[in-house]
Computed example of a mutant assay.
Amino acid sequence: MKQKFLAVLWCVLGTCLHSKAALVAHYRFDEATGATAANDELAGTAGAVGSGVTTGVAGISGNAYSFAGSSASQDGIVDMGNASFFSAITTSGEFTFSVWVNTTDTTGNRNTVIFAGDNTTSNVYADLGVAAGQAGYLGSASARNRPVGADISQQTGIYSSPTVDPVNDGNWHLLVMTVSISSEIMSLYVDGVLANTQIMTTSALPNFNNFEIGRLGRSSPVDPYQGLVDDIQIYDQALTASEVDFLYANPGVAIPEPRIVALLGLGMSLSIRRKRG
């Protein structure tokens, strides 16, 4: 009886309360071969798919996109421009970037998967990617939050090495970075494991006017990414370790909205009380 009750409750709540308060953008990359636009599931800003990006390849969840990484040209990226979700993360002072990657690249520098920042200058952005060929960090994940005025340590950012193994091994890996201005902490996770953190000396977010997948989209773009990318999720909160673990265990699934979780708990409690009564 309890299982039936919860199944019905989940169905009802999943239909009526599917607003996902903290999720502000979700690019599944499930489009078919030849797609020219990457759609945001939440109806936010769509991304223009460059002619050098291959869509419709097998992903960790549904389809994925393949990036050649041969140059940092516009043809090789997905470009959302001044994405609609920027206002949400600027207001909250927090964000989480989550993305599945699959690469065997061993060349280049910090090959950028996610770029969010100012495309009119050189060093004002947040980025998440793979340090495929960077000496001392070969194949590790990397993350940076570089607001105006950041010192050298914050400009350098953090790496997942040596806490976890390199991610350029031809397997799917979940990369997650979280930033919280109030706590002054940036965190980097790989496959649900906290790999590194940084106390930010300049606790601020970058200026945002450009969101791109596949390169460091600053004023002079560099560091193209080579490999597969799937299921990009953006939150206006710094997710907890347990929430990041949920994303790793459930590829393609967003964090359940708190209201749904709370009401499910209430439903279970009511069901148990009725059974006892």
Rank of each mutant, 00 (worst) to 15 (best):
M1I: 06
L6D: 00
W10R: 05
C11V: 01
V12N: 01
L13S: 04
L17S: 08
H18M: 05
A22W: 04
L23C: 11
V24D: 09
V24G: 03
A25L: 03
H26K: 05
F29L: 11
F29N: 01
D30E: 03
E31G: 10
T33L: 11
G34Q: 06
N39T: 10
D40R: 03
E41I: 00
E41P: 00
L42H: 04
A43T: 03
T45C: 10
A46Y: 03
G47K: 03
G50L: 11
V53M: 08
V53L: 10
I60Y: 09
S61C: 11
N63T: 04
N63M: 05
A64M: 06
S66D: 06
G69N: 06
S71L: 08
A72D: 13
A72G: 12
S73Y: 09
I77K: 09
N82A: 15
A83W: 10
A83T: 06
F85N: 01
S87H: 01
S87C: 01
S87T: 15
A88Y: 08
S92M: 04
S92F: 09
S92V: 04
F95I: 01
V99W: 02
W100L: 02
D105C: 12
D105E: 15
R110H: 11
R110E: 10
T112H: 08
A116R: 07
G117Y: 14
T120L: 11
T120F: 11
S122I: 06
N123C: 00
V124D: 14
Y125P: 00
D127N: 08
G133R: 10
Q134T: 11
Q134Y: 15
A135P: 06
Y137P: 00
S140K: 02
S142F: 14
S142N: 07
R144C: 07
R146M: 13
P147I: 03
G149D: 04
G149N: 15
D151Q: 07
D151N: 15
I152F: 09
S153C: 01
S153D: 14
T156Q: 14
G157L: 05
S160M: 08
S160V: 02
S160I: 02
S161T: 03
P162W: 13
T163E: 01
V164Y: 12
D169Y: 07
N171P: 00
H173M: 07
L174Y: 05
V176L: 10
V176Y: 06
T178W: 14
V179P: 00
V190M: 12
V190N: 05
L194A: 08
N196C: 01
M200F: 04
M200H: 07
T201G: 13
S203K: 05
F208V: 00
F211P: 00
E212P: 00
I213T: 02
P221A: 10
P221S: 07
D223K: 04
P224R: 12
Y225P: 03
D231S: 10
I234E: 05
A238Y: 10
A238V: 05
V244E: 02
A254P: 06
I255W: 13
P258I: 10
P258R: 02
I260Q: 14
V261T: 12
L266I: 13
M268A: 14
L270D: 00
R273T: 06
R276Y: 07
G277T: 04
